[in-house]
Amino acid sequence: MIVGLTGGIGSGKTTIAKMFHELGVSIYIADVEAKKLMNTSKIIQKELIETFGDETYVDGELNRSYLSNIVFNNPEELQKINAIVHPRVGEHFKSWYHERRNEAYIIKEVAILFENGSYTQCDKIITVVAPIEARFRRLIQRDQTTREAIQSRMNNQWSDAKKTALSDYIIHNDNLAKAKEQVKKIHQEILLNSEKI
């Protein structure tokens, strides 16, 4: 069973994913795998250089700041990157999942699970939500960034209301102890459901 885990930027998806991992669940974090593939896949490298120029890589390493500047406030350019990277991440996930298909369920954590349409490949969906100010606080601290830069990234994502309407489970991540309780409850429910399939 594939369980999609998503949530707006700064909602604490990765923290929640770790809680599931502590319960023995295998986790696939799409953003982490995408970053790895952007540095290791010759096909991705070739297509990104053809699209954005030779400066996209410096000494074989992805030039993140160069690409970030291109996509900042530019959804069309972001779409171009996603069109190159996401299909390869999808293929990578399939082989990763194939090795774990006998597990009761796995979690695929994707920031833009709804936006890129991959939610249709999930059996269940969990959306993590958190108060907007808490999200700003986390991101400013984590990324040493500005409210404006965060807002720009938020504008490229679906609203919480739109996501939760299509989700099976919602985790309110404004208190770690309470979030952990919600994770345990959802874990038990999914295990029960997977036994019935």
Score class of each variant (00 low, 15 high):
1 M>C: 04
2 I>C: 05
6 T>Y: 01
13 K>M: 04
14 T>S: 14
14 T>F: 00
20 F>N: 09
23 L>N: 10
27 I>P: 09
30 A>I: 08
31 D>Q: 03
34 A>G: 07
35 K>E: 13
35 K>V: 05
39 N>E: 09
42 K>D: 14
43 I>D: 15
43 I>A: 13
44 I>H: 06
46 K>Y: 12
50 E>L: 11
51 T>Y: 05
51 T>M: 10
52 F>R: 10
55 E>I: 03
57 Y>M: 04
57 Y>V: 06
58 V>F: 13
59 D>Y: 09
65 S>F: 09
65 S>C: 00
65 S>K: 15
66 Y>V: 04
68 S>E: 15
71 V>L: 06
71 V>R: 07
71 V>T: 05
71 V>D: 01
74 N>A: 13
74 N>Y: 07
76 E>F: 01
77 E>P: 04
78 L>C: 08
80 K>A: 11
80 K>S: 07
85 V>D: 10
85 V>A: 11
86 H>P: 12
87 P>E: 06
90 G>F: 05
102 N>H: 11
103 E>Y: 06
106 I>V: 15
107 I>N: 07
108 K>W: 03
108 K>M: 07
109 E>R: 02
111 A>V: 10
115 E>Q: 04
117 G>I: 04
117 G>P: 01
117 G>C: 02
118 S>E: 13
120 T>I: 10
121 Q>A: 13
122 C>A: 14
124 K>M: 07
125 I>A: 07
128 V>P: 00
136 F>S: 03
140 I>F: 01
147 R>P: 04
152 S>A: 15
158 W>E: 08
159 S>D: 11
159 S>T: 15
159 S>A: 10
160 D>P: 01
162 K>A: 06
165 A>P: 00
168 D>T: 10
172 H>Q: 10
174 D>F: 11
177 A>Q: 09
183 V>W: 10
184 K>D: 13
187 H>G: 05
192 L>Y: 02
192 L>S: 12
194 S>L: 03
195 E>W: 14
195 E>G: 00
196 K>T: 10
